[in-house]
Design a protein around this nucleic acid. Structure first.
Lengths: 204, 204
DNA sequence: TGTACATCAGTGAACGCGCGTTCACTGATGTAC
DNA sequence: TGTACATCAGTGAACGCGCGTTCACTGATGTAC
């Protein structure tokens, strides 16, 4: 029960951190982009935010619970970016570029979002919902202007293109300088295959 | 120094296993398809093939060395499948289907091949070489029949499509029943975008 | 305005685990004479 | 054909590590009177 010294007052960190849940998520994201999904650890994340090893258990039931929460956050951000793009002047290209840019800016997170945690999304309702919203957005953007009978195929085609290009860029198999141009060029493909005579699609 | 009993003779496993290197690779592949790249462990693999924990160090310098070797094996198999397809009656579709089928039949291996180990492939010459051969094959198959100035873009487009579709199928985001049909449909896209008037590409 | 008490937020020690890797070793095999 | 010796293939104990999770706890805060 000693009185506080001046140093105590200056350097002591408060007993109540106040934002552990949020801070854990952002620490996890930093680790994600640094070392990939398997590089995330509860203990290391706690260390980074200056909190005890077990503090996160007040907010997350387990490590996977935290990761699911981070992934859900990622899907919400991706949805938001797609929303903006869809309402922009060039919805289709906008969407394509937003998707690829999100992947490149959030490499580790992108891997987490489409990794094993997503396969188990039934266990995490919030993740499930956030992912659903994103997929709907994509479907809408990709299906714009195509005939109803082709909507589904065109959506899958466009999504495959964007997802594949994003992955190849992240893995360094396609040079990044051309990412923007490729995203545009590559997306023409999905229009042409289903609507070969669509005059709104310029010749390559 | 007791004499061997009958049980010894019947059940005793030979001191010399004889195929440790190969067996480790195949154990790793089994674990890969079961639990993904992070589910592979040197100790567990050794256990599976009935050999001491450290036996693999005679053949592989480290865990990563083993994984690189497994990935290289994967690339060689993929190359072989693409080779067959290219020489078949319908090179383009054949290639598409071979790629997607390889991914679906070797989910964990596919993830390993295009994961972090590939990014560090400079460290593993054999992996590097095997991957290079595969990428060349893809480039050839995808560029067939397109004008020289478009070859590169078309190759990237086709690869993105196949890689993206494979990934989405593996992650369960696109139903597998349609994998074959989708691989075909989806591949039309890459022809149309670069050669919009190519008469060899049927209308969708 | 002060005090008692309930609730909340975070702590710290301890558990058991499987892992990758090192090291000096031993059992088995092949070769030369 | 037998023996000595070198080489090869695999062993087993030990190292230190970081991890996820549990548990009973303590310090800080908010509320009621």
């Amino acid at each position: 029960m000693n009185a506080l010294t001046i140093m105590d007052i200056v350097t002591k960190k408060p007993y109540h951190h106040g934002h552990v849940a949020e801070a854990m998520r952002s620490a996890a994201r930093a680790m994600l982009d640094q070392d990939g999904p398997e590089g995330v650890g509860l203990r290391e994340a706690a260390r980074r935010i200056g909190v005890s090893t077990t503090a996160s258990y007040r907010y997350y039931q387990s490590k996977d619970d935290l990761l699911a929460s981070v992934a859900a956050e990622g899907f919400r951000e991706l949805s938001a970016a797609l929303d903006v793009a869809i309402r922009g002047s060039d919805p289709m290209f906008g969407t394509a570029i937003a998707y690829v840019e999100f992947a490149l800016k959030n490499r580790g997170l992108f891997r987490l979002m489409f990794g094993p945690i997503l396969v188990e999304r039934a266990k995490y309702p919030k993740l499930s919902e956030a992912a659903e919203v994103t997929f709907n957005n994509l479907h809408l953007a990709a299906g714009r202007g195509s005939e109803p009978r082709n909507k589904n195929v065109e959506a899958i085609t466009a999504w495959s293109l964007l997802h594949g290009l994003s992955s190849l860029l992240i893995e360094g198999l396609v040079p990044e300088e051309n990412a923007r141009a490729l995203a545009e060029t590559v997306l023409f493909a999905s229009r042409r295959v289903v609507n070969p005579d669509d005059p709104s699609v310029p010749s390559a």
